[in-house]
Simulated assay, not measured.
Amino acid sequence: MPEPDMNAVVGDHDILLLTLDTLRHDVAVELAAEGRIPHLARQLPGGRWEKRHAPGSFTYASHQAIFAGFLPTPAEPGPHPRLFAASFAGSETTAEGTFVYDTPDLVSGLAAAGYRTVCVGGVGFFNRRGPLGSVLPGLFQEAHWEEEFGVTSPHSFENQIARVEQVVGQLPTEQRLFLFVNVSALHQPNWFHLPGATREAGDTRETHAAALEYVDRHIGRLFAAASSRRRCFVIVCSDHGTAYGDDGYTGHRLGHESVWTVPYAHFFLDPAEAVR
């Protein structure tokens, strides 16, 4: 995947970082190949996901790394230059096109570069209902979370997009935006996204796939909002995968191929291209 010069992007483009929480690489690849996620596939370079390794095995750890500039790493021998990096002596992955910031994290680094930083959270680590759930959203100048954005809502992604549209619509035109959205729909429970599935039968790889199809049906609205004011640089990735009985494992926060291998893409959106 071609690496953009982030020093030309930062300060000129809006930026969208979209984490599809717990999305498995194999499921994402299958659905793209089968034509089941046409709106996402339309934006993926070559219509395909890049295979990468997650920086953590669960949401909190992975997002701490991502917000420090450590996005999922290409699943092949490196070194791999990074898009973003804190100023750090001896870094072997900071390259000419890396945006380097003199703050502890990417969010404050972009704020220092003049961006309005906005978080629209999904899973519980973004709910601000206690000290732990306040750490990640606390990095942002503006953070949003409602029960309707969370894992138990069958309409979580639509509700998140409505909030994004509201936020974007209130920004001054000249204000650059760093928008982060953590999509909760893929995370367990997701059985309600598959017609005919039941709570008693629980979550499966098939209901996980159905949740991604649900996200795809609505993602055009998010892309349209994010690129409505100017060109937008977009990063879409999973923070980690999750196991559904693979080799006897269930869930995440464990070391298994289904957890550490994730889909990734980055691309540019122009306002005319981001159709609903």
Rank of each mutant, 00 (worst) to 15 (best):
W145T: 02
P172S: 08
G109D: 06
F268E: 09
D5E: 09
Y264H: 11
I66E: 01
A41K: 06
L31A: 00
T73R: 12
D239P: 05
L136G: 04
D105M: 01
A210L: 07
V168T: 01
D5F: 09
L110F: 12
G11N: 07
P131K: 10
D216A: 04
G97P: 06
R24Q: 09
L179N: 03
V168C: 00
A112T: 11
F268D: 05
G109R: 03
Y244E: 09
G124S: 07
H218S: 12
I66T: 06
E273I: 03
P172H: 10
L212E: 02
G220K: 00
P2T: 14
L254A: 01
R276L: 15
A111V: 10
L110T: 03
T242N: 14
E50M: 13
Y249M: 12
I15G: 01
V118K: 01
V275Y: 02
P131I: 09
G251F: 13
E158R: 13
A113E: 06
G56V: 01
Y101D: 05
A201K: 11
E96C: 00
D203G: 08
H13Y: 14
A32R: 02
D12G: 10
A211L: 05
G169R: 07
L269C: 02
T250Y: 15
H240M: 06
F149V: 03
Q141A: 14
L20P: 02
R231C: 14
V164M: 10
A211P: 08
P172E: 14
E257M: 10
E257G: 08
D26I: 04
I66R: 00
P263N: 05
A89G: 03
T93V: 15
H208N: 10
V151K: 13
G248D: 12
A143V: 11
D5K: 03
A224T: 04
Y214F: 14
A89R: 13
L71F: 15
E76M: 06
E200P: 04
N127F: 12
H25T: 00
A143C: 13
R42T: 12
T173G: 12
A201F: 08
T261P: 07
V100G: 01
H256M: 06
F157A: 03
A8G: 11
K51S: 14
D247C: 08
T98F: 05
G35S: 06
L136D: 02
T207V: 11
Y101T: 10
L171V: 07
Y244V: 00
G251E: 07
P137Y: 09
